[in-house]
Design a protein around this nucleic acid. Structure first.
Lengths: 220, 220
DNA sequence: GTGTCTTTGTGAAAGTGTGCACAAGCGTCC
DNA sequence: GGACGCTTGTGCACACTTTCACAAAGACAC
């Protein structure tokens, strides 16, 4: 379930604040969702709530972590040591949340040997060795679009089973490999769409304000 | 519709390759989705296809761009000049896709004045001035979690109407403001969940292979 | 213990999105 | 100009998700 990480974040925050017990109603409020949905999602983990009381925050955090496989760290390997790769490796947010950068590789010899995010950049040929030595199962693609597919192929060949793809291309992988895609431009374009609707709405309002100005009653 | 940017990307790629005409079937194949869904999505823009022939690639690109508001650039302003803010500003992928970085602000005086991504970092107090001078409507939050809400408040006060939030916190904004959230850790946690299921599946298989080993028939 | 109050867990209803299947329409060939 | 083949646009059914509503169940007071 894709909402478990969100509940985990909310619960962790509450735990840090000292909350020991929380109801589905409160949790729903924090997450901006429906309380029934929260209960359905959590009941999927098992019956860990107490009727009349709510959920034990610490216990629930543990259960969600167990379900998400966050009881131990997962090393990740980043393919591509360009701007984006460096940014991701140096960002620090990965390691803090249980996903330390176990390696960075690139295909460009001029990038090999440099250090990003505390890790030395190695050649993509050494990917299999890195992956097997550190038992890595998650790979991150931070290459330009045209190199994304070959990066994916290398990762799969090295034995990776989950890929986080930042390149603006769709990659083909064998059945059984999990892929998630994050395209920053797509996110901005969706916002742009909302902005454009706002502009259009204003223009329509203006036109309607002038009596007898062409067609009327354009629906939203 | 959140799939329009994806179609746009696919169509642009096809246009670059010299394709002038494309059927919903081909487009669906490229995007890995159902052809009927493609047609339904595109029919939302209007009837721009020709029966028996398909869609004119160039014209369809224009129509999608118009719908998404991509006929002109949208400047964005980034709040937070830390690792992530620098990475985003220096990434370059924004400008290429029609979202140039129009400003970067931070609250930390030691960061003011530095140049990231070709733009000088200014104080968050100047946010309103930057936003109004450059007519910016999209803001990007690249601050640590605890500063996200105050960054959002500043952006709203400055007149921003769309926010892309990279901080791992949920922000509250007035009605009418569009917000999209990208949490890199959440993406990794979802992959981790799949990995964990893989591990569990292997364990179950192993247990089942040993005759008479405890409970049998654990369902997936 | 008994009763009351609170909150969970879940069956059923409502809503949303997806995919099939086919009529309508366009181009092409003869 | 008529028949044929191909592809769109869309009604309809199905599946999945979300929300409502309420019985079941624990906690607490007396």
């Amino acid at each position: 379930m894709a909402r478990l990480p969100i509940y985990l974040k909310l619960l962790s925050d509450q735990f840090d604040v000292g909350t020991t017990n929380i109801s589905s109603e409160e949790l729903a409020e924090l997450g901006g969702v429906n309380a029934a949905k929260v209960r359905k999602d959590l009941s999927y983990l098992g019956s860990y709530g107490t009727r009349g009381v709510g959920y034990d925050v610490e216990f629930l955090i543990f259960q969600i972590k167990r379900e998400l496989g966050l009881t131990h760290d997962w090393d990740v390997v980043i393919v591509g040591a360009g701007h984006l790769g460096k940014a991701l490796a140096g960002y620090g947010g990965f390691g803090e949340r249980g996903f330390p950068v176990g390696g960075v590789v690139d295909i460009d010899p001029s990038k090999i040997g440099g250090v990003v995010g505390g890790v030395r950049v190695r050649h993509v040929d050494q990917l299999t060795e890195i992956v097997q030595t550190k038992e890595i199962s998650i790979g991150v693609i931070a290459t330009p679009g045209q190199a994304a597919q070959s990066a994916a192929d290398s990762l799969v060949a090295a034995g990776i089973t989950s890929i986080l793809n930042f390149a603006p291309n769709i990659i083909n992988v064998p059945h059984g490999i999990s892929v998630r895609k994050v395209d920053l431009a797509v996110e901005l374009q969706i916002l742009s769409y909302h902005e454009q609707r706002r502009v259009n709405a204003r223009r329509v309002t203006k036109l309607q304000a002038v009596p007898g100005n062409g067609r009327r009653g354009a629906s939203a």
